[in-house]
């Protein structure tokens, strides 16, 4: 990966993972009234380590294919309900709303970091 790419890589991966988690939390909120639905989530901490740790495959010859390990197949977990309900649904709106708003805030934080890095690069390129 080139220098600029690797400079932005960590936050780009984090942004992708945050957006994936947003989708999962939205699914939980969508299924708040479905009997027997089990709320899902992913552990951001371990996932980001896995995503950043793997990275692209090292190539020693220019005829090698530079493959990247696809960022799919996240390890999905099930949420443990605080107050289990009779219909087998484990979505608790208070919990999901908290997680969702936290995730949105962290997404915006990552976006700000990414913006700062891009602005820094731009000013370095312009040399002003």
């Amino acid at each position: 990966m080139n220098k600029i790419g690797s400079y932005l890589n960590f936050h780009a991966q984090a942004l992708e993972l945050r957006s994936r988690r947003n989708e999962i939390l939205a699914s939980n909120i969508a299924n708040a009234a479905t009997p027997n639905f089990k709320a899902r989530d992913l552990d951001f901490d371990s996932e980001i380590k896995r995503h950043v740790g793997i990275g692209p495959l090292q190539t020693t010859n220019e005829q090698h294919f530079p493959t990247t390990v696809a960022a799919t197949g996240n390890k999905m977990l099930f949420r443990e309900p605080i107050n289990p309900s009779l219909d087998g649904n484990t979505v608790e709106l208070s919990v999901e709303q908290m997680e969702f708003s936290e995730n949105v805030t962290r997404y915006q934080t990552t976006l700000t970091f990414l913006n700062n890095r891009i602005t820094g690069l731009m000013s370095a390129i312009r040399g002003e």
Partner: peptide
């Protein structure tokens, strides 16, 4: 009451995500 609350929750999710998308488009 329950249906309308859950409807509102979904509306909230969409409007938040839309705001996030707008900010992401303006990245850089």
């Amino acid at each position: 009451v329950e249906a309308s609350r859950q409807y509102q929750n979904n509306v909230e999710v969409i409007s938040t995500i839309r705001a996030l998308m707008m900010r992401t488009i303006n990245m850089g």
